[in-house]
Design a protein around this nucleic acid. Structure first.
Lengths: 400, 400
DNA sequence: AAGACTTTGTTTATTGCATAGACAAAGTAA
DNA sequence: TTACTTTGTCTATGCAATAAACAAAGTCTT
C-alpha cells in the first residue's frame, strides 16, 4: 500500500502549511496571533515562521499597534516570491496572464486565433507564454508553473483527447509545453478552469460546493465538490451539455438526443434566430445589439434561452445540491435579457430543500474566469509541492 | 481556524490507522509483512500492533509458513470486537441487521409495517433494534452504533425533513434513538445507504467513484465521489429522480416537469400499465409474473422502462463520469426484461470517452443494499472515532 | 518620572514518537 | 553440525512540539 506514513517531517510539513495558510488568509498577522489562532505553541510558530522567512515566502512588514505591551511584528505573505502563467486557449483567441502567487495580474496578453490546426496554435500559444515570462520580474522561485484551459476533453496526462471546435484529437499539450519550458504544466478543460477561477478569485470565493456552468458555443460544467475539483473517474466529468432534457428531442453529434446544449447554448440560440427568420443578426453580438435596441422578437428569444438554461440548472441543483451555481462564458453577456426567465425557471423547477440555500450567480471575472483558473492551477501546484517537500530556504532564481 | 495541528499523537494515530488498515485488507499478515507493505519500521509496527492487541482489535492466530527463517506470527483483525446495528426503514417494512465489525451478518429481522405515522413506526423500529441488540454476543466494544436508512430527505442533525411516502415531516429520528440507546446514531437517505452498502460489500467494492441509482416507487441516487459519500451543500444531493428528461413533460408534485421518475420508476411503470389497459397486474410482482409467463405487451412495457432508465443513466454518466453505475432497489427484479434496452440506451446516449471505462451493474446485495449501508455507517463511525482518539486498551463491555 | 503590569517573541529543558541498527529467537538448507 | 535467513524485540539517537522561564519592548497609574 505505502500510504504516506507519519513521522517528524510530516508533522513539520503539516504545521508549516497551517502557519502559511493562517498568514495567507489573515493578512498582516503577528507570531502571537498565529499561535493563538492555530493552537500551535508560540515557540513552534516562531521556528516555522523563521523558516518561511528564510524561504522568502514570508516577510516582516513592521510593527503593529500595541495592545498594552510589546508591539507585535507583523508578517505578510510575499506574493511576489514567484509568478504563475495562466492561459485560456479559446476557439478563436488566446488569452494569457502573468500573476503573482496571490493571483494578482501582473501582465496580460490577448491574441486572436485565425486558424485551429495544432501546430500554428501551439506557436501562438508559446509566443504568448514567452512574452509573459519575459515580463516576469526576478524572484526567488521564478515562474512556478504554467496552467492552460482548453475547450475540450483532457486526460490526466495532459493530452487533449478531443476538442471538437478546434478539431483537435490527441494533442499531447502538456508534454509539449513541459519539454519546451521545463516547468510544471497543468492542462484542463475550460469549464474546470473557469470553476477554479471563480471559486478562488470570483463569485464563488470560499464556497466549497459549486457548479460553474460554462455557456458558450456548447455547454460544459466544472464541478467543485468538497473544496476540490471533481474530475470523475477518468477526467471527463462535467459534460453536462450532453445531458438529455428532451428525451426524444433533436439528435446530437454525440449520439444522444435532446442534449441540453442543443437548446440553451449560444449555437442553439443563433440557430433558433435563423429559423425564426430574424434577420441581420448572425452572431451573438448582433443579437445582443438588437435586443438592446428594443427588438422584442429578439428579447423573447433570449428569454426563451434563459428558460432552457434554467431547466438544466434545475437538474444540476436537484442532482448536486451545490451552494452555488455560477453561469459563465460568452452567454453571460445576454444576462440582462435572460436572467429573469432563468431565475424563475430555476425556482419553479427545483425542489424546495436544495433551493433554500442556493445562490445562482453570474461569473464575476467576466471573460477572465478560465484564464484565472488556469493561473490558479499553476499556483496551487506550487503550494502542493511546498507542502509535499517542505520549504527550500535561500533559493535564488531569476524570473527567466 | 484551529485546524488539527501536527504533534506526536497525530503521528501515532496516523500510523496506527495505517497498520490497522493493512491488517483489515491484508487478512492474515505478519508484523514483518506489515512493515514491508506500509514502509513503517519493524519496531514501530511491533509497538502499534501491541497496542491494537491490548485494545482487542487485533489478535495473533498462530504461525505461518517459514520462507527459510523464523516462522511469522500471523495477525488478524478481531471482527467480533464489537457489533453494529443497521436498519432499512422502508415504506411498508423494516429490515434490521446485526453485523460484526467486518460487516458479516450475525442476525437479521424483517417486520412488515402496516401504518406510517411516526410513533407506531418508531415503536416497531425500536422493537427491531432491541431484538437485534439482545442477540449481540458479549464483546469488548459492545454495540458500536446504529445506522438507519430512510426513504426521504435527512438533514445533518439526523432529522427526517421530508419523507413523502411515509408522510413524515420534521421527525428528529437521530435524537430519539440516541436518547433511547445512548449510542452513536447515524441517519441517512435510503439511496445514500444503498450506495455505501454496495460500495463496501456489494457490486462496487473498492470503486472510488460510483453512482447508486435506487429505482423504487420513486428514484433517488447515492453518490460516492472520491471514496466518500457526497451529500451536497445541505445534505440533499442525489434527488436525481426530479431531473427533467422531458423539458415540458408531465408536471410533477415537486414543481418541475418531465421528471425522470415520472417515466422510469416503479410507479410510472404501473401507471403506464394501467393506461395501456393491461389487466390483472396492479403491482410490480404481478407485472413481473406476467412478463415471466410470456405476455409480450408487458415485456414491451418493461423494455420501455429500461429505455427511460437508460436516458437518465446516460445523463448521470455524462455529468459525473463515474467508474460504475449500480442499479438498485425494487426495479432490479425486472432486470431480465429491462437490462437489454437499458444497456443499449446507455451505450447509444453516452459520450464515448466517459463510456469507455464505465461499468453498468445491478445491486449485488439485492434488497439488502440499504441495510448493509446503514450498518456500514455505524461501523465506519466507530473506526473514525478510533482514529480520532486512538485505541483505548483493555476495554471490557457487554454486548448489552 | 518611576514602578507595576502586559504583551511579544526567544530560550531551555522535557517528552513522545519513529528510526536504524544491533541482537536474540526460531527457523531452513547442506 | 554449521552457515545462512527471517522474524520480532531492544537500544541508542534524533527530531519536533511543548510548557515554562525569560528577555525585550511596550502601556498605564499615581
Amino acid at each position: 500500500m505505502m500510504t504516506e506514513t507519519g513521522d517528524q517531517t510530516l508533522i513539520k510539513r503539516i504545521n508549516t502549511a497551517i502557519v502559511l495558510e493562517a498568514i495567507l488568509r489573515g493578512a498582516p498577522l503577528s507570531r502571537a496571533q498565529i499561535s493563538e489562532r492555530t493552537g500551535l505553541n508560540k515557540a513552534t510558530v516562531s521556528n516555522l515562521v523563521q523558516e518561511l522567512i528564510d524561504g522568502s515566502l514570508v516577510c516582516e512588514i513592521g510593527t503593529g499597534q500595541s495592545s498594552g505591551g510589546r508591539k507585535p511584528v507583523l508578517l505578510e505573505f510575499v506574493a511576489t516570491a514567484g509568478h504563475a502563467v495562466g492561459v485560456d486557449l479559446g476557439v478563436n483567441y488566446i488569452r494569457g496572464v502573468l500573476t503573482d502567487l496571490k493571483g494578482a495580474i501582473v501582465a496580460e496578453r490577448v491574441t486572436a486565433l485565425r486558424q485551429t490546426e495544432p501546430e500554428p496554435v501551439l506557436n501562438e500559444l508559446c509566443a504568448c507564454v514567452d512574452g509573459l515570462i519575459s515580463l516576469a520580474p526576478p524572484s526567488p522561485y521564478g515562474i512556478v508553473g504554467i496552467g492552460v484551459g482548453v475547450p475540450g476533453l483532457v486526460d490526466d496526462s495532459g493530452t487533449v483527447l478531443l476538442a471538437p471546435n478546434l478539431k483537435w484529437r490527441g494533442v499531447p499539450l502538456r508534454d509539449r509545453l513541459a519539454e519546451r519550458y521545463r516547468l510544471p504544466v497543468t492542462i484542463d478543460n475550460e469549464a474546470n478552469a473557469g470553476a477554479l477561477g471563480e471559486q478562488k478569485y470570483g463569485a464563488g470565493r470560499r464556497i466549497s460546493n459549486l457548479v460553474y456552468v460554462s455557456v458558450g458555443i456548447g455547454i460544459g460544467a466544472g464541478l467543485i465538490l468538497q473544496q476540490s475539483l471533481y474530475k470523475g473517474a477518468s477526467g471527463f466529468s462535467g459534460e453536462i451539455g450532453h445531458m438529455s432534457v428532451e428525451a426524444f428531442g433533436k439528435p446530437c453529434a454525440c449520439g444522444n438526443q435532446g442534449c441540453w446544449e442543443a437548446y440553451a447554448s449560444e449555437r442553439a440560440l443563433l440557430e433558433r434566430a435563423k429559423h425564426s427568420g430574424i434577420e441581420g443578426v448572425d452572431d451573438l453580438d448582433g443579437l445582443l445589439a438588437a435586443a438592446a435596441a428594443g427588438r422584442e422578437d429578439v428579447q423573447a428569444l433570449l428569454a426563451q434561452a434563459g428558460e432552457y438554461l434554467g431547466i438544466g440548472v434545475a437538474n444540476i441543483v436537484n442532482a448536486f445540491n451545490p451552494e452555488a451555481v455560477i453561469i459563465g462564458n460568452r452567454m453571460t453577456r445576454a444576462r440582462p435579457w435572460l436572467e429573469d426567465s432563468l431565475r424563475k425557471t430555476v425556482v419553479r423547477r427545483t425542489m424546495s430543500f436544495p433551493l433554500r440555500h442556493l445562490q445562482l450567480m453570474f461569473a464575476e471575472l467576466g471573460d477572465r474566469s478560465a484564464v484565472m483558473g488556469a493561473a490558479e492551477m499553476a499556483i496551487s501546484g506550487f503550494f502542493a509541492r511546498l507542502k509535499a517537500g517542505a520549504v527550500i530556504p535561500g533559493r535564488k532564481r531569476n524570473g527567466q
